[in-house]
C-alpha cells in the first residue's frame, strides 16, 4: 500500500512554515528527506504524523536523541508496558523477544533507568518501541547525530534489515545528503518550507535541478576515497 497524503501544510504565528505539499511514499521504500536546518523537515514530519494518525495509519517516529524519547526517571520496563498499553495490545513476550533479537538487545534487564544503558542501546530500545506499533511508516530523525558512527551505521543496518521483512516504509530525515544518499533509494529536498525536488537518488545526485539541490549535491561528500 502506498502512503499518499495531499495538501499537508502548517502555519505558525501567521507565517507559513510548510507550503501545501503532496507526498506519495510507496510501500517498503526507503526515502531520504534532506534540507538544511530550518528548511521545514521537522514541520513536514509532524504534519505527516498527525495526518496519518488521524487516518488510522500506524506511524512511528524516532527522535534524534534517546533523551527526546525516554523519561530518565522511569525504567525501560515501564516504557515498554506503557507503549503496549497505549497501543492497546496485551503483553506479548514472543514479539518482544523478536524485536529485541532483531535490534541486538536480547538478554538485557529492562528493570533499569534508560541512563544505565549506553546511548546506542537506548536508541535501539527506542526503535524497538517504535516497531512495536507495526508501523506502516517509520521515521528516523537525524539517526546518526547523537551516536558514534560505528554504532549509528550498525543500528541503521539492523533497522533496515528488520523492516525489509515487514514491508515498513522508511523515511530518513537529515541535513546530510551524503547520509541520505547512502541509505535511501529516493530523495526529497526541502528548502524554506517547500519540497523543491524529488527524484531517485542516482538521478538527483547526477542531475540536480533546483538550486538548493544543486548546492546540497556540491557539498555532498567530504572526500572520495581511492578504491
Amino acid at each position: 500500500m502506498t502512503i499518499h497524503v495531499d495538501g499537508l501544510s502548517a502555519v505558525r504565528a501567521g507565517r507559513t512554515i510548510l507550503h501545501p505539499t503532496n507526498l506519495s511514499l510507496p510501500q517498503g521504500s526507503r526515502i531520504g528527506l534532506v534540507g538544511p536546518s530550518g528548511s521545514g523537515k521537522s514541520t513536514l514530519c509532524y504534519a505527516l504524523i498527525d495526518r496519518l494518525q488521524a487516518e488510522g495509519i500506524a506511524v512511528a517516529h524516532v527522535p534524534q536523541s534517546p533523551d527526546e524519547a525516554l523519561d530518565p526517571l522511569r525504567t525501560l520496563a515501564f516504557h515498554w508496558r506503557q507503549a503496549e498499553r497505549a497501543l492497546g495490545i496485551a503483553p506479548d513476550p514472543a514479539r518482544k523477544g523478536d524485536l529485541f533479537r532483531a535490534l541486538r538487545l536480547q538478554g538485557q534487564s529492562l528493570n533499569v533507568r534508560p541512563w544505565a544503558w549506553s546511548r546506542g542501546m537506548q536508541q535501539r530500545f527506542v526503535i524497538a518501541v517504535a516497531l512495536l506499533a507495526q508501523p506502516a511508516l517509520l521515521i528516523l530523525d537525524e539517526p546518526t547525530s547523537a551516536l558514534d558512527p560505528v554504532i549509528a551505521a550498525a543500528t541503521l543496518s539492523l533497522v533496515e534489515h528488520h523492516i525489509a521483512e515487514t514491508g515498513t516504509t522508511l523515511l530518513i530525515v537529515t541535513h546530510d545528503l551524503g547520509l541520505a544518499a547512502a541509505r535511501a533509494a529516493h530523495l526529497m529536498v526541502m528548502h524554506e518550507g517547500r519540497v523543491v525536488e524529488q527524484a531517485a537518488t542516482a538521478d538527483l545526485l547526477a542531475r540536480p535541478v533546483s538550486s538548493p539541490a544543486q548546492s546540497l549535491v556540491a557539498h555532498r561528500n567530504w572526500a572520495v576515497l581511492p578504491c
Binding site: 558512527p149 549509528a152 541503521l156 541520505a180 547512502a182 561528500n221
Partner: peptide
C-alpha cells in the same frame, strides 16, 4: 577499519574509481 566502513556506510566517505 570499522570506523572507515561506518563512514562509508553513512555517506561521509565514498569509494569511487580514481
Amino acid at each position: 577499519q570499522s570506523l572507515v566502513n561506518a563512514a562509508v556506510a553513512l555517506g561521509a566517505l565514498e569509494h569511487r574509481a580514481a
